[in-house]
């Protein structure tokens, strides 16, 4: 079980990760960790590959098709997603050929037609000189179906409050029966990872996440009385961290928590 804040990095590949293999990325010979993916290896060496559905804490998904690269193994070349392709001795990778860029341009265009207003997608589209693949107008809902929200909810929060419904172009992340799901504690991790801003969290006296038909009560800070976190989320965090004897700071809003920490430090220094 993964606890909030203590989520262990998901190891999706069952290869022992203690040895090193040599691969070539863009004519550069690199020593990389066996068991990692091409994208992870490239990132570890500062080689930039654009990506949208990848997150280091989550299982690779391979859905957005933006991190496409050319891999060559045993003389066979193919265009594939670097976030899912495992490294292996002698693998040759090219991240920026004309063919790779053309393929990315195509998929970015398709994503742009889904989320024409999203800054991340617009930036990529500018970089690759892309027009929207399909003019959707008002039908563009702003979601690119990258599944980060669903994966973070399932893999790190341990909740599975949301999932994809429908298929094909009608696929969309949703709650069961399109209604408020009590399993969702409105933690907002989904919105935090959403690359397009499709999921919006609005905090007032309550927290509202309209994508999930959610309205959750916010707990008040013990010191200042400000509403700062969903009450049920806080309860869950306390449950999970009860062995750490820090529950007295969990009722405080981030600001009061900081002040309390400073006071504690001052007391220590005064001594």
């Amino acid at each position: 079980m993964n606890y909030i804040g203590l989520g262990s990095k998901h190891k999706s590949r069952g290869v022992a990760a203690n040895f090193i293999v040599k691969i070539v990325i863009n004519n550069q010979e690199l020593s990389v960790e066996a068991g990692s993916t091409v994208l992870e290896a490239a990132r570890a060496h500062g080689i930039d590959i654009p990506h949208l559905c990848y997150h280091p804490a989550l299982t690779p998904y391979g859905a957005c098709r933006v991190c496409l690269v050319e891999v060559e193994k045993n003389g066979r070349k193919q265009i594939t997603t670097s976030c899912t392709y495992p490294v292996g001795e002698g693998l040759v990778v090219r991240t920026n050929t004309e063919e790779v860029r053309a393929a990315r341009k195509f998929t970015i265009g398709l994503l742009l037609s889904r989320a024409p207003e999203a800054e991340t997608i617009k930036k990529l589209a500018d970089e690759y000189g892309v027009e929207p693949g399909l003019e959707r107008g008002e039908d563009a809902d702003g979601c690119i179906r990258c599944g980060l929200c669903i994966r973070v909810c399932r893999e790190l929060m341990g909740h599975e409050a949301i999932g994809f419904i429908n298929r094909g172009a009608e696929r969309i992340p949703e709650t069961p029966f399109l209604e408020d799901n009590p399993d969702c504690v409105a933690c907002g991790a989904c919105a935090y990872l959403c690359p397009t801003g499709y999921i919006k969290v609005i905090d007032d006296t309550t927290r509202k996440i309209s994508s999930w038909h959610k309205e959750e009560g916010l707990a008040e800070c013990r010191e200042c009385g400000r509403r700062f976190a969903p009450a049920r989320l806080l309860h869950k965090v306390k449950e999970n961290l009860r062995d750490l004897e820090i529950s007295d700071i969990l009722d405080l809003c981030p600001e009061c928590r900081r002040e309390k920490e400073i006071k504690t430090l001052n007391v220590v220094e005064d001594r």
Binding site: L110, R114, G133, R145, A169
Partner: peptide, 21 residues
Amino acid sequence: TREESCGKCPPCSEGSLLMLK
């Protein structure tokens, strides 16, 4: 295939729409 596409990746779900158009 458009109707049967799972929708996970855009080339299949969106690309087939483009071609159909």
